[in-house]
Amino acid sequence: MQLLTVNKLSKSFGGLVAINNFNLRVESGDLVGLIGPNGAGKTTVFNLLTGLYQPTTGSITFDGRDLKGKHPHQITRMGMARTFQNIRLFGNLSVLDNVKIAYQAVVNYGLIPAFLRVPPFNRREEEIEKAALELLEIFGLKEHAYDRARNLPYGEQRCLEITRALATGPKLLLLDEPAAGMNPQETHELLSLIKWIREQFKLTIILIEHDMSLVMGLCERVLVLDYGSLIAEGTPQEIQQNPKVIEAYLGDEEVVAWEE
């Protein structure tokens, strides 16, 4: 089943074209990589998908519905979740509250029960807390449940971002440079984690990443963006040999990453 269809998507800021005629088809269960040099427009694609930006032209269809005019929170509730390249946790709140807030997309109750603490307040709160703690346990964060999120070590903050995104109950997960700032050991663990959550939560994943070992180790299909346009699409092997891609990266710092 086709989960996501992006058709002739363009976005310009003032006169600057950030995304130009971008097309993408993602089947349910796919794991797609999105790569490209710095400033190629990868994060802009995510911002368009999640509704933070409205496209200048083109359309996005997710789970059979057109996303035109939908607000970000509505899109999240339709089953799309994301993480951020620069971590955006609710830093002063506890790790548990970070996940609980996300879980509201799945289970919630009205204002009257909230004000008066009458049913279903207790029942739903218990349900939310139980689910959040379970999720934290799966990701090995349960012992930190009552710590402030911003006091977590860097790697665990990244992990919490993913946990929190999963708590919204997504069908499609967008990961924006999950391995940024991680050492090879941590990157390797992340690779297994992503494989595992994909199986466990039956997820479709789109991944932006600079670390080529991660992209090549994970993705079945890779798209390459340069200056806002799609310049190549194919299996990791095809992409590695594509002359256009090599040219796009040549002279860029990413060459180093390619040699790994």
């Binding site: 970000p72 929170h73 951020f84 955006r88 997309a105 919204t168």
Partner: peptide, 10 residues
């Protein structure tokens, strides 16, 4: 705490 992340949490 972070209005962007809040939106992404629905």
């Amino acid at each position: 705490e972070n209005d962007l992340a809040a939106q992404m949490m629905g």
